[in-house]
Amino acid sequence: MKTKRINFWAFFWVVLAFLYFFLPMYGTLDFSLRMKKGVLSLLAYQKVLADPQFLASFRYSAIMGVITVIFSILLFVPTVYWIHLKMRQLRPLVEIITILPFIIPVIVYVFGLIRTFSGPPFQLTLTPFKTDILMVAGYIVLAMPYMFRAIDVGMQTIDVRTLTEAAQSLGANWAQILFNVIFPNLRTAILSGALISFALVIGELILGDFLARPALGPYMVEVGRDMAYQPAALAIMSYALTWICLGLITLFSRSNNNQRQILGR
């Protein structure tokens, strides 16, 4: 009897959460399909995809996303690895630092970034290339909570210290340990962090807007100001991209299950 009641409430909350999440999405999808009067069509999507400015801003954000992911991996994997290996007492402090982007509003952070790095000696807003460097650095900070956590959780599932020592005793140097032992065993964790970071960069608005770069976020706002149906189509496409990223994370997590380290079995 008790089980039945629990099942009913569990079902109720799941349905409620489902409606809360998917009803607005359904509304947006429905609206995006009604550009042609009286019929459902993909016209809004066609118009978005045909817009050269969309393609340019998407390409720009995608490139920024890939660069952000590469530098985040190169920065965070060795850092988290070193913390796990040699400085475990520092982990709580680093964890607090990594959640700062959640605490400090992005607008405050962006103003600080521009104030500090636009003037001498850095002058990173003088040319588009230098501004892009600043953008990537900013994205790395914004992606830090996701990237750090994903890699940190990955590190916890392997015995970092013993694996390192085993590789050292076999003659491996630090680079060989990192690239042959640590990176491959963190593949799923790195991919999770990378895909979330990529999705974050694709949808990010404030950095691109204030640094006046042709990113997808500012483009979406601009389209939203001038048009009705295309922003809805863009929102659905953006959702789809995020869901594809999450799907890929799940896929890689499953395929990596047979290589988990088993201790003391």
Binding site: T162, A166, S169, V181, N185, Q259, R260, Q261, I262, L263
Partner: peptide, 13 residues
């Protein structure tokens, strides 16, 4: 110097 660990420490990948 070769070393064998209590937890085997085989490379899972």
């Amino acid at each position: 110097v070769g070393m064998v660990f209590q937890s085997y420490a085989l490379f899972p990948n």
